[in-house]
């Protein structure tokens, strides 16, 4: 399928997800069914719904981290529209690497890897020269108020808020066409929340399609173009 300029950046079609818990008597938990979500370039859609409604599950499904039972996730990759759920594993890796940024709720730290390298990792993996990737990372870490003395340290000992800001920097180091954000401002103070709002606004301005979960009303008002209720 060849895409045209009018194709949305991200489209979920007929997405359904249930969890079957085999260890607990095979109980089946339906999460969502028949989700239709279209996100255009430059647009930010906020997922809303009560806790447990499946917002994070939907977000993880859009990254193909969770495997939906039915439906398609159509993204534009190398000028073609591809279904993330039908792609081979190595294609999923490649599509994620160049097309989809995902900021999880918690940073997964790797022993001994310095914060600067954690942030630069996705850019280097995408093929950006290491010195350039690190320069970008330093700019982001500075904007997110991570003091320079922490850059060479592994984030395992950082506070929750510091880890989250490292995670955000990691998600914005590449100019992904699609960005998925799972409560990026949850444990941040007002100044850092404002920086995250700026980063999102800048990403929208360059044409990124953003799907996010924001519990902070103020942040949501500042960035959301549209709300999408997950029921």
């Amino acid at each position: 399928m060849i895409s045209s300029a009018t194709d949305p950046a991200l489209r979920a079609v007929g997405l359904a997800k249930t969890f079957t818990l085999h260890a607990q008597g095979g109980i089946v938990l339906p999460v969502f069914d028949n989700i239709e979500l279209t996100v255009n370039a430059g647009e930010c859609v906020c997922l809303v719904g009560p806790s447990g409604a499946g917002k994070s599950t939907l977000l993880r499904s859009l990254y193909a981290n969770y495997k939906p039972d039915a439906g398609k996730i159509l993204v534009v990759h190398r000028n073609e529209t591809v279904d993330l759920l039908a792609a081979e594993p190595w294609e999923v890796v490649e599509i994620r690497r160049s097309a989809i940024g995902y900021v999880s709720q918690f940073l997964r730290v790797i022993p001994r890897v310095p914060a600067l390298d954690v942030v630069a990792g996705p850019a280097i993996a995408k093929g950006i020269p290491a010195d350039q990737a690190k320069a970008l990372s330093k700019t982001l870490l500075t904007r997110l108020n991570i003091p320079e003395r922490l850059w060479p340290l592994a984030p395992a000992t950082f506070s929750g808020g510091e880890q989250q800001r490292v995670n955000i920097a990691r998600g914005f180091v590449v100019d992904y066409p699609i960005i998925l954000l799972d409560e990026p401002t949850a444990s941040l103070d007002a100044a850092n929340r404002a920086t995250v709002v700026d980063l999102i606004t800048e990403a929208k301005a360059r044409g990124a399609a953003i799907v996010g979960i924001f519990h902070d009303e103020e942040v949501r008002r500042a960035v959301a173009d549209r709300l999408f209720a997950v029921a």
């Binding site: 085999h22 260890a23 193909a64 969770y66 495997k67 890796v93």
Partner: peptide, 21 residues
Amino acid sequence: TGLADQVLDDPHHPYTQLLVS
């Protein structure tokens, strides 16, 4: 079988679920 994060975060087979849990 699948991508490492898929298998570990959303295991489907009963044995994989047991292993992950």
